[in-house]
Design a binder for these strands. Structure first.
Length: 552
RNA sequence: CUGCCCGUAGCUCAACUGGAUAGAGCACCAGUUUUCUAAACUGGGGGUUACAGGUUCGAUUCCUGUCGGGCAGGCCA
């Protein structure tokens, strides 16, 4: 439709200017229904160049636009906007198009089957997942669904930092717990983890439990001095817990990458050698430094510590080189904003390898921190302090659908306040139920009608004339554009907002009109409209990973 | 002190990357069910978009400065 309008308008514009580039024509979807279905600011853009007032220019262009049976009217408005109103024929075409496309309405092929890798959650296996990880899971998974809908081949990936200092801390914490050392005892590791889950791991370890994690069975030796077994068992235990959390959150991954594997196969060493060879390193204070300042960082960073081990970002660089070598030209990392400083380091490391990796690769989506409030008090999300709200608790209390909605419905770069009491007590006022209810209402009407839904088709000559109907038609016709935009801008929250508005339009329509009326022609038209709305709601909810129940 | 993100109704958040009269929900007030689910709908009040400048036809959006909040600035991740 947009292409059709652009073509028509360009024919007119060409007669007035010598411009040969149709990309100067931009159509927008006006917010206000009186401003039509499409609007363009072309006259405002051209007025300066042609030294004519925008409104006069608009009049000239308007005269030269060819007629089309898809357009009912074109108006000049405001400072010189051209507002296009679609004809009933165009509207009916959209509805029939949705009825034909069904579950694939909203899909597009802009991805062209290209590969994309999306890394998200990537929590350290040092504790259960908390609300912050939930936000990452919700946003990352929705992004993946968006790219799939836009024709990309998506790989969802989880990276485990299962090596390094934090894992040592974990092991020592569990060991201390096995020895019944209280957390406030001076013998308890200073940087240790304090949560109750540490005691549970210790108990399971001492009773020599076996953990089945990702198809591998790990058995605890039960011996307190066997630090290797404690470490192995603790990681397996927590990975298993995290897997269960993710299942409860309906989030799946295609690939799990382990930091430890990059040490085992020697890739970390290779990256370090390569960085040294390319001349981006130097020794100082007994450590090896990477000149990240060569690539825009504000100071150089240690890559090899005096004790011979590497800092975290070297395995990170290795991992990203691995992604690049697996052929992912497009990679998105979804992370918490507290990791933003790694961006410049990872990119600097990749540049230092001299492999022609683009400077802005990989892309990042950073979500801001969450403040959790319960009983008007902030709940601190701190693993070490132990007082900590897990994702699982949240799902149990609020439900998976609502949790996903709340966490995905906000711009990633806004800090969000998650009020547990509100999410819980407000069950019925929750936006997700509002949207699901709209879907359920349609389902029920169609059920009561009792006809064969697959035969629903809108008569080309039918004219919808009420404002609630026109508003709803406009709403559902925008859906494919919203999907594309949300994908391009890496902004899943736009889907959530759209669905809320679409549901509102449906509810207005429902309260305003009766569908199962005597007049067969009107009945079929209205059923066609709400059935196409049903597909939009269902497809949109699917993008968010939320159920579309037939009844509530 | 330096870098990144943010500041919009009493509260939680939008605003199509510069568009028209800044919109929703919650809360508050007043209405709507003999009719397909009232988990809904209709109407009302509530704003100097933190503040001060600048850029232009046009700024919540871009630039500069100030104030305020969050996160980083580990040989932790």
């Amino acid at each position: 439709m947009k292409a059709h309008l652009t073509e028509l308008l360009f024919l007119a514009v060409k007669q007035i200017t010598d411009c040969n580039d149709s990309s100067i024509i931009v159509f927008e979807r006006p917010k206000i229904i009186n401003h039509g279905d499409f609007s363009t600011n072309i006259c405002l853009v051209l007025s300066k160049k042609l030294k004519k007032s925008p409104r006069a220019l608009a009049a000239m262009i308007l005269e030269k636009i060819p007629t089309s049976d898809l357009i009912s009217n074109i108006e000049i408005a405001g400072a010189g906007f051209l507002n296009f109103f679609l004809s009933s024929k165009a509207n009916n075409k959209i509805i029939n198009d949705i009825l034909n496309s069904k579950d694939s309405y909203g899909k597009n092929k802009t991805g062209n089957n290209k590969k994309i890798q999306i890394e998200f959650v990537s929590a350290n296996p040092t504790g259960p997942l908390h609300v912050g990880h939930g936000r990452g899971a919700a946003i990352g998974d929705c992004l993946a669904r968006l790219f799939e809908t836009s024709g990309w081949v998506v790989t969802r990936e989880f990276y485990y930092n299962d090596a390094g200092e934090q894992i040592n801390n974990l092991m020592h914490s569990v060991k201390a717990s096995c020895q019944k050392i209280p957390t406030d005892d001076p013998r308890f590791p200073t940087d240790g983890y304090h949560g109750e889950y540490i005691n549970e791991i210790a108990k399971a370890f001492l009773s020599m439990k076996t953990i089945d994690c990702q198809g591998v069975k790990i058995k605890a030796s039960g011996k307190i001095e066997d630090t290797k077994s404690i470490q192995e068992f603790s990681i397996a235990y927590l990975r298993k817990e995290q897997d269960l959390d993710l299942i409860a959150f309906k989030t799946k991954f295609d690939v799990y990458s382990l930091e430890s594997s990059f040490y085992k196969d020697g890739k970390v060493e290779k990256v370090v050698d390569s960085l040294i060879k390319e001349g981006h390193t130097y020794e100082k204070d007994g450590a090896l430094w990477l000149k990240t300042t060569n690539f825009g960082d504000d100071k150089d960073r240690v890559m090899k510590k005096t004790d011979g081990t590497y800092t975290y970002f070297i395995p990170d660089v290795t991992y990203h080189l691995d992604k690049w070598e697996r052929g992912f030209k497009k990679v998105i990392n979804e992370q918490g904003a507290d990791h933003h400083s790694t961006i410049s380091r990872v990119r600097a490391g990749l540049q230092g390898l001299n492999k022609n990796i683009p400077k802005d690769w990989p892309e990042y989506v950073l979500h801001q921190m969450i403040t959790v409030i319960k009983g008007n008090k902030e709940v601190k999300i701190s693993k070490r302090a132990g007082s900590y709200l897990t994702l699982r608790e949240l799902i149990d209390e609020v439900g998976c659908d609502a949790t996903r909605y709340f966490l995905a419905a906000r711009r990633p770069d806004s800090q969000l306040v998650f009020d547990i009491d509100l999410a819980k007590s407000q069950n019925n006022d929750n936006p997700v139920y509002y949207i699901q209810y709209a879907h359920a209402r349609i389902s029920k009407v169609l059920e009561q009608w009792g006809g064969d839904i697959s035969t629903l088709k809108l008569d080309e000559s039918f004219i919808f004339d009420s404002n609630v109907e026109l508003k709803l038609i406009k709403s559902i016709s925008i859906y494919p554009e919203i999907v594309l935009q949300a994908t391009n801008e890496l902004a899943p929250h736009q889907i959530a907002n759209f669905l809320k508005e679409c549901a509102a339009d449906l509810h207005s329509y429902y309260n305003n009109s009766k569908f199962l009326v005597e007049d067969e022609k009107i009945k079929m038209a209205r059923l066609s409209l709400i059935n196409s709305t049903k597909y939009v709601l269902k497809n949109g909810l699917q993008l968010l990973g939320i159920e579309a129940p037939p009844q509530m």
